[in-house]
Design a binder for these strands. Structure first.
Lengths: 132, 132
DNA sequence: ATGCACCCTGAAGTGGCTATAGGGTCAATA
DNA sequence: TATTGACCCTATAGCCACTTCAGGGTGCAT
């Protein structure tokens, strides 16, 4: 399988695959006579794992840890649980931050019935003091 | 006012203030005999506006536009409204993405009652196929 | 005179890619 | 056989919004 095929199968850009290789997330595959990368099923599996993890918002650093843990089938999965739980907490934090922020913005936008900047409630909500 | 004072008043790092100056968001202040930046009230106002906008999640590019609009008191505020509304839509998108993602993760974590990686539901939910 | 907190500049690093330049490979077609 | 065009290669720079670092200067108190 060539890099383009792998890219299509995993919905990943070719450059991203090469980037993962450089970062040590994906093992360097063998090369054919023309120096093209040749991928096997194991690469497809590993890249799918990485992409799925990234889609779920894990950082590459977290993915690195998850891969290492996944490789060790006999190890305890408590560490996996810890990473996932910490990630959920982080996501919850983001959601509540964004919700607060959204409400504040909506308030300004809804209130702004004026025509000019001078009376614009949005600008006013950003300014520290009245300009006069 | 020296840069450190301005930093404290606006809860901004000194380096960030210099960065905003380099980026043209904050006008270059005058200097004292020792080449230290000397800030006036207008700088405090402008930096506060920038920080508040950033806190609300606007990009620096959006802040740049908002500042330009805010400077022109007679202009129509419809553009401001457009920027803010587009931003709210963006935030809504992020919130719903994160909520979906959170639910998926929670499902895996709640289901994982096993001890070893081999049976870990979280790892399983990331893996594309069963490893056997 | 010395210490220390603060200030200066310029360059490089962060994450997670994406884009660009400048080339090589390979299979199909004219 | 020559050529086209899709694909591949490497190396480097760019993106955002800063942060960090190296290597120095200033200013005030002790």
């Amino acid at each position: 399988m060539k890099i383009g095929d792998l890219a299509k199968l995993t919905d990943t850009r070719v450059e991203t695959i090469r980037y993962y290789e450089k970062e040590g997330l994906l093992p360097a595959p063998s090369r054919n006579s023309g120096n093209y990368r040749v991928y096997e099923l194991q690469h497809l599996n590993r890249l799918s794992f990485i992409r799925r993890s990234r889609d779920l918002g894990f950082t590459l650093e977290q993915v690195r840890k998850l891969l290492k843990l996944a490789d060790n089938q006999d190890a305890s999965c408590s560490e996996v649980d810890a990473i996932a739980t910490e990630h959920i907490i982080e996501i919850d934090r983001k959601i509540s931050d964004l919700t607060l922020l959204r409400d504040q913005l909506l308030l300004s936008v809804d209130c702004c019935q004026s025509d000019t900047i001078a009376d614009c409630k949005i600008i006013e909500s950003l300014a520290p003091f009245k300009n006069h």
